[in-house]
Amino acid sequence: MLNVLFIFLYIGSISFGGGWAVVGLIKDIMISQNYLTFTEFKEILTAAQITPGPIAVNMATYVGYKYYGFIGAILTTFFLLLPPIIIMSSYLILKKSIKLKKKYFINSLALGTAVLVFTTLYSLGAQFIINFDIKAIILVLAIFILLIKTRIDPIFFIIGLGLIAILVF
């Protein structure tokens, strides 16, 4: 039990960049330490996708639940989120005493973030272009333009496109 909690504490503290980068990390650690088989991992990935929220949180909850029941699920989720909670709190507390030219620092963080968003977009969407998946490319562009030009709630696109996909694909 302590070992699993330590693993999630570790994952929580090195999971920079978010999303799929973390999924790869969890996969490597969980499979190499024999907590999950590859088939189980794929099942969890499906479960993580049909439930809302960050995938890393889904994975932590699932592994905790599978091995130690409800209390285990609470503990693994909590340990995954503990490092960000500690780091964010210390950032918010120390913010005033750090001497940085805030305007430039935020702008530099924005540049770094734009790079990470671009690489996320690349790892999610490059397959559409490589496979020349016209339908998907058109839908992506349509959503992009609608998001810029209208004030429609993005949640609508996610649920809506899911339903469209059942009918069209």
Binding site: Q49, L124, I158, L161, G162, A165
Partner: peptide, 11 residues
């Protein structure tokens, strides 16, 4: 479908 929407939202 949700996945395609996610790519659109990320862009």
């Amino acid at each position: 479908g949700c996945y395609i929407a996610t790519v659109g939202l990320t862009s």
